[in-house]
Design a binder for these strands. Structure first.
Lengths: 108, 108
DNA sequence: GATATCTTCTATAATACCGAAGAAATTAAG
DNA sequence: CTTAATTTCTTCGGTATTATAGAAGATATC
């Protein structure tokens, strides 16, 4: 659509929450905790790439840390346009969930 | 994902709101009003079909009404599973938008 | 070189998006 | 009256974007 997809939204919020420590693995952990569902590695990085390409986050490769697995992390950070996009869906959400009549359930 | 997509959510809410009068055209109007964006005919019916296939709405073709354009309408109604799915994303949304630190904006 | 931690790559399925074509009724023409 | 034009709605078919998944690749420590 023209709005953030739900995934993009969740991912942005997770990055926001993680602050200085947002990279692939922690982000994956964060959305897993949040949703209680399984997220494949690929699914996470896919969204991350898209957010980057869309210019909603900035990214920087950190220095390799002195620990067993050496590959250096790619850190993410929400930038202005990202916050704006988030605000947009928050407003939409708010408008969407009002004026709902009593749910007349159907049998089945 | 495993949750309703944003479109599916908006569409379900619109159907819910429209109550007895939810069919292609009014639903399209409703989501257009809500989002302020253009929705093609096809985009609307596409989601509607998906919701039906997923068993989140029930549908019934109405009797042709005595008015100019004769084609009878296909009415939609949110059913139990649909309300449940909506509830799920509402909860998710609520959980997602908390514990957010001060947005430390980046320049650019 | 074995092991650990992370990211990139490649492939497939599901969603989103769009307008032309099709269906079925009413109204207008002759 | 019979047929053609008009109106209202939905179905169809094709393309682009998102979502899913895990294997492969990179780079550090032990």
């Amino acid at each position: 659509m023209k709005f953030l997809s739900r995934q993009e939204e969740l991912m942005l919020l997770s990055i926001w929450k993680l602050d200085d420590n947002a990279y692939g693995v922690t982000i994956r952990q964060s959305v897993t905790d949040l949703t209680g569902k399984y997220w494949s590695i690929g699914a996470v990085y896919d969204v991350l790439d898209r957010l980057t390409k869309k210019g909603l986050v900035s990214t920087v490769v950190g220095d390799p840390v002195k620990a067993r697995g050496g590959k250096s992390k790619r850190f993410y950070r929400v930038i202005k346009s990202g916050f704006k996009a988030l605000e947009e869906v928050r407003d939409l959400q708010q408008k969407a969930w009002v004026d709902l009549p009593e749910p007349a359930f159907e049998k089945k």
